[in-house]
Amino acid sequence: MSTYAWIGLGNMGGPMTANLVAAGHTVRGYDLDAEACKAAATGGVQIAGSIAEAMDQADAVFTMLPKGEHVRSVYEADDGIWANATNHMLLADSSTVDIETSRAIHAGSQERGLNFIDAPVSGGISGAAAGTLAFMLGGAPELMERATEFIAPMSGKTIVAGGPSMGIAAKICNNMMLFIDLMASAEGSQLAEALGLDPEVFWQIASVSSGRSWAQQTWYPVPGIIDTAAANNNFEATFRTDLARKDIGLALDAGQSTGVQLPAASLAREHFDELISQGLGDKDCSLIVKNLLPDGVVRGWNPKETESAPSAAS
C-alpha cells in the first residue's frame, strides 16, 4: 500500500481520495477550506495542517485545485511542494490549468531533479465518486507505468497522451468539446419542446441518434429526464459556470497562441459570461439553457428559491 499527499479536497479531490482510502492506501490531505477537510475526513483522509505535513514520507503527491495560479502557489511557496519533495515521490497535477502553468511546473520540477506528470481527468463529480475517471497523462515515458499504478483506484481509463503538458492539452480540447456539446443539448432540448415534442421522448430519440453526446446523456438541461441533471435540483452546480468559463477561456487562449479559429468555443464563452454577469457563476453551467428563451424562464429553474437559500461555502 502507498502513502499519498493530496492538496485540494474539493468536489473532485474529496471523492477521489475516498476511493484511494477504500483501496487500502493512506491519504494525507490538505485544503484551506475547513468544510472540505471535514468532508474528506469522513471518507478516511487524514487531514494535515500544512503541505509539509501532508507530504511527509509520501510516495505520491497529487494536486487538484481550481486554477493555474493555485497550482503555482502550492509548488512555489517557501514551504510548498518543491520545498518538501524528494526524487522518490511522484508529483502529479490533476487540475485543469493553462498550458503555460503546466509547462512551468514540468520545467521547475525537472530542474530540481523531481518526477512530475500532468494528469488531468474527465468524468466529473459522478466519475470521481464512482472511481471511473478518465486520466490523461503527460510527462516522461519512464514515469507512466508507476503513475498508472498510483491512479488505478480512481480511474476507469488511463491514457498516456504524450510528453510534458500533453495531458493538459488533451483536457483543454476535451472540455472545449464538452461545452460545445452542452450548447447543442440546451438548444435542441428547448427547440424540441417549443415544437411540441414530449421532452422524454425526444431525449430517447437523441440517445439512439446522431445527437447523442456525453453532455446529452449526463447534463441534459430538462428536469425529470435523467437523474444526474442539475435541472432536477434548481441547477445547483455539478460543474460551476465560473469554472466552465475558466476552462473554455483556456481553450480560446490556446487557439489564439496556435492560430486556430474557435468560433463555437467563443459562443460558449458568451453564454457563460452572460450567466456570470447575472450573478450566477456559482450555478451549474447547464443553466445556459435560460439564455435561449426571451424571458429566461425554463423548467427546473426557480431564481426565487436561490435567493432565499442560505449561502454555502464554495
Rank of each mutant, 00 (worst) to 15 (best):
V160F: 07
E305Y: 03
S308M: 12
N115S: 10
V298N: 00
V298G: 05
F62W: 15
V260T: 13
L114Q: 13
A107Y: 07
T148D: 06
G139A: 03
A170V: 14
P153F: 01
S50A: 06
L197V: 14
E76W: 04
L293W: 11
D227W: 08
D56G: 11
Y75K: 00
G139R: 06
I151D: 03
D59P: 04
L252R: 14
L133I: 05
G296K: 01
V45T: 15
S94H: 12
A265C: 13
K283R: 15
A48M: 06
G131H: 01
L182M: 14
D253H: 09
A107K: 14
G163F: 03
P303W: 08
G196P: 07
L114R: 02
F135W: 12
L178Q: 11
A22K: 13
V61C: 02
M176D: 06
A170P: 00
Q261F: 12
E142Q: 15
G300Q: 05
A192C: 12
A85D: 05
L243I: 07
A231R: 02
F272Q: 02
I105L: 11
L262A: 06
V21L: 07
A251H: 08
L252T: 05
A265D: 02
D253A: 14
T42R: 13
G80N: 05
T101Y: 00
A128M: 07
G68V: 05
A206P: 00
E307T: 07
E145N: 10
T17G: 10
E236W: 03
D273N: 11
I7P: 10
T96H: 09
I117W: 01
D79H: 04
L133M: 13
A119G: 09
A107P: 04
M89F: 02
D33N: 15
T17P: 03
V27F: 11
W203S: 11
S210R: 10
K246F: 02
S207D: 13
E236H: 08
V27A: 11
A265Q: 03
S155I: 07
M136I: 06
G211T: 09
V121L: 13
V61Y: 00
V45Y: 02
I168E: 02
G13N: 04
Y220T: 09
D56M: 15
A251M: 05
N87E: 15
R240C: 01
I47T: 01
Q110N: 10
A265G: 14
I159E: 12
Y220M: 10
G113W: 05
N232M: 03
G43H: 00
L287F: 05
S165Q: 03
L195C: 14
T258H: 12
S126R: 07
T218R: 07
G108M: 00
E53D: 14
A23W: 10
A23K: 03
I81T: 01
Q46E: 15
L178M: 12
R28K: 12
P199A: 12
F202Y: 14
T218A: 01
Q190C: 06
C285R: 02
A130K: 07
A77H: 09
R146A: 10
C173R: 00
N302W: 00
D242A: 08
